[in-house]
């Protein structure tokens, strides 16, 4: 092998290692972020659907467990990356918890949950102060299939 060929191979390999390494590190960070976001969206959606279904069909204890799973996850997501989406979803989740507690005859717990719901909605819409009835009607409205939803007042 000639000296010229050897030095070409060494220089080209070094250039390849440098380029590949930079690109590999960049893509790993980018893909990890995409996968993490997809998991957050999927987990939020899955727990919201589960809580809604359990609220409709299960006994109060299981319905409460389902909505607590949703709240627990959303609070962790909010700690990692605060977002108005999580805050609004927490407002809806606490409203559902209040409705579950109300249906189970736990009036005091229901009032506490409604207060949490108001606090979360207040973060997203500081100018609006929602009533318990309004929050409850939002949750019931969202549970209907889009085609069956009457317009909100």
């Amino acid at each position: 092998m000639s000296a010229q060929l050897r030095s070409t191979i060494v220089v080209a390999a070094l250039a390849g290692i440098l380029t590949g390494g930079t690109l590999g590190a960049y893509m790993a960070r980018k893909n990890d972020g995409i996968v993490e976001s997809a998991r957050v969206i999927a987990a939020s959606s899955a727990t919201a659907a589960f809580a809604a279904e359990q609220f409709r069909h299960a006994d109060p204890q299981h319905a409460r467990e389902a909505v607590m799973l949703q709240i627990d996850l959303l609070q962790q997501f909010e700690r990692i990356a605060p977002s108005s989406v999580h805050e609004r979803n927490l407002g809806f989740a606490y409203t559902r918890l209040a409705m579950v507690d109300e249906a189970a005859g736990q009036k005091a717990d229901s009032e506490v949950a409604f207060q949490h719901a108001k606090d979360w909605f207040q973060k997203v819409h500081p100018e609006n102060r929602l009533t318990d009835v309004q929050m409850e009607s939002f949750v019931r409205h969202l549970e209907k299939p889009p085609a069956d939803r009457p317009p909100l007042p």
Binding site: I9, A12, A13, G16, T19, G20, G21
Partner: peptide, 21 residues
């Protein structure tokens, strides 16, 4: 030979850096 060395070095380094990151 230079191209081959570039592609081989680049590929190995890409996967290595991805895993390490």
């Amino acid at each position: 030979a230079g191209l081959l060395a570039f592609v081989l070095g680049g590929s190995l380094s890409y996967f290595g850096a991805e895993r390490l990151t």
